[in-house]
């Protein structure tokens, strides 16, 4: 008994005396800034391109902010402040297709748009962006693919206590040959007004990637199970995307599901922007809103 007490006391004393060493500082060379491109096509020959710049890893730390602030509001505000700082204004943004070049107009700081971008399947686009202040220039290419459209899509809540399981059954047209698709499921955010674009933009989302090797004879169908889906409605979209963008989305999903840098190598997102970052795409989805009531 006495021996156990002595041993326990010694152990506790040693552990109290033990110190955590001071971390060592490190200086790393920061990469030079590059232009960052994102794009979104929309019905009506609309193409929107955002232009920003990359910055140092020491400017902002998403994880640190998340740990310090329990609300997303402060995090969003910080990102917005950074966006404002790094969005590029007065850039020359052009898209060349079908033998002509269209210059996009700046609508907001860092956001450029045009209403004259032909959206014929098979059209090839070349994007060129020049930041006139810094001289940075990037280029990229993309092809407008035949739009995917739902043949049918329906959602059904399964009566299983505790799972909040929703099954979504879908079918959409498939083009001949190998194709790549993305299905996105959006839940409504009950705190946002009904029937507004924000309603489905701030809730939960699920992304499903489908690679078709060309053997589906015109229709791709399937069922997706979504657990813990508490909301009474959802929006579902399908897009026909390029193989490059499919690979980008695969890496994006891996990054979000990564177990962390102690347990795996960090995930680098690919890019189709020459001399820059981001991704240039020209697809837009087919969207359906479904009620689960």
């Amino acid at each position: 008994m006495r021996l156990r007490f002595i041993i326990s006391s010694l152990c506790c004393a040693a552990l109290l005396v033990a110190c955590q060493p001071e971390p060592l500082a490190l200086k790393l060379n920061e990469p030079p800034p590059k232009l960052v491109i994102a794009s979104q096509a929309a019905p009506g020959q609309v193409l929107v391109v955002t232009v920003s710049k990359s910055f140092s890893a020491l400017e902002y730390n998403e994880q640190e902010v998340d740990e310090e602030d329990s609300t997303n509001v402060d995090n969003t505000q910080e990102i917005n402040a950074l966006l404002n700082q790094f969005l590029v204004s007065n850039a020359l943004v052009t898209v060349t297709f079908d033998g002509r070049t269209e210059t996009l107009t700046q609508v907001e700081k860092g956001i450029y748009a045009s209403l004259n971008i032909n959206q014929n399947p098979g059209t090839e686009y070349e994007l060129r962006v020049i930041d006139q202040a810094s001289g940075l220039e990037v280029t990229s290419r993309a092809t407008f693919l035949e739009r995917a459209r739902f043949e049918s899509v329906e959602a059904r809540r399964k009566e299983e206590v505790g799972t909040e399981l929703v099954e979504v059954t879908y079918a959409f047209e498939d083009e001949p040959g190998p194709n790549w698709y993305v299905l996105t499921f959006y839940s409504e955010d009950p705190e946002e007004p009904e029937f507004t674009s924000l309603q489905y933009q701030t809730g939960r989302t699920e992304v499903v990637l489908i690679a078709d090797n060309g053997g589906n004879e015109g229709i791709i169908s399937g069922t997706e199970k979504l657990y813990q889906w508490e909301q009474d409605s959802m929006a579902v979209s399908v897009s026909n995307i390029s193989q490059e963008y499919y690979n980008y989305l695969q890496q994006w999903k891996k990054r979000n599901n990564s177990p962390g840098d102690l347990l795996s190598e960090p995930v680098t997102l690919p890019t189709n922007i020459r001399n820059g970052y981001g991704f240039f795409t020209t697809h837009y989805p087919d969207v359906r809103v479904l009620s689960l009531k």
Binding site: V36, K53, S54, G278
Partner: peptide, 16 residues
């Protein structure tokens, strides 16, 4: 060593 801001593919936010 660096980072950039990018809308996420679902267009529901911006990520670093």
């Amino acid at each position: 060593t660096g980072q950039y801001l990018m809308p996420n593919p679902t267009l529901t936010g911006v990520e670093a």
